[in-house]
Structure formats: structure tokens, C-alpha cells
């Protein structure tokens, strides 16, 4: 899976690259408008992470370029601007998603995961990890042959989040942000995240799935 990171801040770009490389993605970077448009013209990518403010031009022009050449690359805008108008404008020009800086790399990871799944496996409605199987249409989760008891919407969202970043540490804060978005600071501590994970583990256990979610003491959880 090839990903192009168009971002003028090298530190951020390298961090994203290093994080995603650990998840079997092949990353390339471009830090200027010129570099970006060259790479976009020459190669096809499964996903492009696009910063709007670039030296030499706007990321929105890259979007227009892609649309003009009828390229099918999935695009996630990563912008410092958190405004509805920018989101609407970006999506109107053909972007698939919009992520406001700063973001959790795990959050970025699930966005890429969902995007690629939507783009490339249009006919495939199952996400598998080992014996765990999630049907994204019916939202039925099975382990081996047993069906996992009905998950609440948030538990289901949490399970997909785990599945998108296997082997990665997911912090409680990151999980809270994924589940609650801007309202993650609603709770002073992340006790409700602990409760969510506990309930999810319990339901998975009822289907015989015990070993997947590991608690990393003081930090968060890991799906393994």
C-alpha cells in the first residue's frame, strides 16, 4: 500500500512516515508544491496525505490537478485550519477526509485504513484479524464460529479502532478523542474509556476471544 505524505514540516512528515511504515505502508514524502505535483503526476498512490499550506502553492491545487487527470488516489487533507468551510471546500474538490492538526497518529491510521478499505475493497465487507471477523455492513462480529454479543455503537467503533492499528499502543486520550471527538475532555479522567474497553473485552471473551486486547500499564491498550 503506497502513501504519499505532502507536508512541508519535515519533522511531522518523518514521524508520520515512521509510524505508518511500521504498519506495512510504503511512504513517500514531498515537502513543496513542486515536488508534490511531480510525484502525483508520475505515480499512483493508494492514499495521499495533503497539507493545504505548502511552499510554492496550495494543496487545493493538487486536488484540482488530481481531479483533472481523473486520478483515483484517496486524499486525506491534514490542515492546521479547523473550519467547516475549508472542510466543505476540500471535500468538494475531491478529498475523501479532513483531519485537523494536531492529531493522534492512531487516528490518522484509522482514517487511512477506512479510506483504503472503501476505495479498494469495494466488494469486500469483512475485516479480519486472526480468527476475528467483522462484517461492516451488518456490524456482526464473530470469533472463529461464535458470534460476539451485540456491541454498542461506541464499542463497535472502539473495536474498529483497535483493528486499524494492530500492535500499536492506543492511549486512553487517543481513544477518547476517537470516540468523542472534540468532546474528549468531557471527563476529567478516562475512566469511561477503561469501562468501554472492559465491556468490549467481556463481550469478546463470551465468544471465546481472550487474548487480543492487552492493557499497557499507565498508558493505554494494544491490540495484538
Amino acid at each position: 500500500m503506497k502513501i504519499l505524505i505532502i507536508e512541508d514540516n519535515m519533522e511531522l512528515s518523518n514521524a508520520i512516515c515512521s509510524y505508518l511504515s511500521g504498519q506495512d505502508y510504503i511512504c513517500e514524502t514531498a515537502s513543496t508544491y513542486l515536488q508534490a505535483s511531480e510525484k502525483v503526476d508520475l505515480y499512483d498512490y493508494d492514499c495521499i496525505l495533503l497539507d493545504i499550506g505548502l511552499p510554492g502553492g496550495s494543496g487545493l491545487q493538487i486536488l484540482k490537478r488530481l481531479a483533472k487527470e481523473n486520478k483515483q488516489d484517496g486524499v486525506i487533507i491534514i490542515s492546521a485550519k479547523n473550519s467547516v468551510e475549508d472542510k466543505i471546500e476540500g471535500i468538494r474538490l475531491g478529498a475523501d477526509d479532513y483531519l485537523t492538526k494536531p492529531f493522534d497518529l492512531a487516528e490518522l491510521s484509522i482514517r487511512i485504513f477506512s479510506l483504503i478499505r472503501r476505495k479498494q475493497f469495494a466488494g469486500k465487507n469483512n475485516i479480519c484479524y486472526g480468527k476475528l471477523n467483522v462484517n461492516i455492513i451488518s456490524k456482526i462480529v464473530t470469533y472463529d464460529t461464535l458470534e460476539v454479543p451485540q456491541l454498542t455503537p461506541k464499542e463497535y467503533k472502539l473495536l474498529l479502532f483497535f483493528l486499524s492499528s494492530p500492535t500499536r499502543v492506543l492511549t486512553k486520550g487517543g481513544i477518547a478523542e476517537h470516540l468523542l471527538g472534540d468532546d474528549a475532555d468531557l471527563f476529567d479522567n478516562f475512566d469511561c474509556i477503561y469501562a468501554h474497553v472492559k465491556n468490549l473485552k467481556k463481550k469478546l471473551k463470551q465468544a471465546g476471544c481472550t487474548e487480543y486486547i492487552k492493557t499497557i500499564y499507565g498508558m493505554g491498550y494494544k491490540f495484538n
Partner: peptide, 28 residues
Amino acid sequence: TPLAVIKSQLDILSNSPSITPRQMECVV
């Protein structure tokens, strides 16, 4: 942007296999 850089570096740090529980506490 600097916050995004700090945040992503921390994410990478917290995923490093050699991190100790004490260091992890700091990261959190």
C-alpha cells in the same frame, strides 16, 4: 503544527519497544 510534531513524536516514542513504564508515565 509544532503541537502536531510533538504529538506524533510522542506517539512514536510510546510505541518504541524499549520504553520503560516510568518513561511511559511521562509520555502520558
